[in-house]
């Protein structure tokens, strides 16, 4: 049975899943009869035709909350990965192009960061930067953005820790590229190092960077859910998949368990991560044969 389901079919299934999840996250909340924050007296109702995934303790429709949560998770994943992309490719390109001592030093720092619990620093960063940022937002009259402060911090903090792999990959590619004939020619013709990086090396990095971007998104979503689970990520009234999961985990107890509050968010998170991981893996095998 497994050999019949070839890997390409799994990839197709993953791509379809991702498309479905993305569309659901974007348009789902608009189609729902309920709003994510709408409280009703149907507290902890089981899944039924009225509430497909049941309701939580405040009577909010779980499906709607899940769709909105997926929206936030995707958003954080995408922007966090974008921040990590910028840091990682700049860092890797610098290390690879400079070479020698600079390269060794920069890469040793990456190795060191790999083996430190960097997420712990994100926890400290988020807990500590929140209040000053809030004050700044109030001073700049940006009150409408206040509920999104944590999300901004998550973009930043997670981007700051997830760039290590990107830096390694970009560096090794730049090491090869900078010896290529067309780069040497540009150097002989007197192009500045910056110009060479920008116009001759960067365009060749786009493919590989795109591949590792697909692999960074699930990593960021995972870290975001982790932090939200600890209560340090997205805060109420907005919710991410991690927050919903934490709510679900709160409700399990020996006497009576609202299993739907746990099972559906878990499934949604695992499905999302799975689809992104399968796609990223496949893309990497195709476009970056050196990684095999």
């Amino acid at each position: 049975m497994l050999s019949k389901w070839r890997f390409d079919q799994w990839t197709a299934f993953a791509a379809a899943s991702l498309a479905f999840l993305l569309l659901a996250a974007i348009f789902g909340p608009l189609l729902s009869h309920y709003s994510a924050a709408e409280i009703s007296d149907q507290s902890l109702a089981r899944p039924s035709p009225l509430h497909w995934m049941g309701t939580d303790i405040h009577g909010r429709d779980l499906l709607t909350r899940l769709l909105c949560g997926a929206r936030i998770s995707f958003l954080v994943g995408f922007f966090g990965a974008l921040v990590s992309l910028m840091i990682g490719s700049a860092y890797g390109a610098l290390a690879g192009y400079a070479g020698g001592k600079v390269d060794r030093l920069l890469m040793q720092l990456v190795d060191l960061l790999y083996s430190l619990p960097t997420l712990i620093f994100v926890i400290v960063l988020i807990a500590l930067l929140e209040a000053p940022l809030r004050k700044a937002f109030l001073a700049w009259q940006l009150t409408t953005l206040l509920p999104y402060i944590r999300i901004f911090l998550l973009f930043l903090g997670l981007g700051l820790v997830e760039w290590l792999t990107m830096a390694r990959v970009v560096r090794s590619r730049v090491l090869v590229l900078k010896e290529a004939l067309f780069v040497q020619a540009a150097r002989v013709l007197g192009r500045s190092p910056w110009g060479i990086l920008r116009h001759h090396i960067l365009p060749h990095l786009l493919g590989i960077v795109a591949v590792y971007l697909t692999l960074t998104v699930p990593a960021v979503i995972l870290s975001e859910s982790f932090l939200s689970f600890l209560g340090l990520g997205v805060e109420p009234p907005s919710a991410s998949l991690g927050t919903l999961l934490a709510d679900g985990a709160q409700t399990i107890n020996p006497i009576w368990t609202a299993w739907w509050l746990l099972v559906f968010p878990s499934g949604a998170l695992a499905w999302t991560l799975w689809a992104l991981n399968v796609l990223g893996d496949k893309l990497r095998d195709r476009l970056d044969p050196s990684s095999r």
Partner: peptide
């Protein structure tokens, strides 16, 4: 193939998803 599938699944199911589910199924 089976191991590879399970591995992709395993990577996509973080501990904090697995742990509450395991408590629900195996203990409660």
């Amino acid at each position: 193939r089976l191991v590879q599938m399970l591995c992709l699944g395993g990577i996509s199911i973080p501990s904090f998803v697995l742990a509450p589910l395991a408590v629900l199924l195996l203990s409660l």
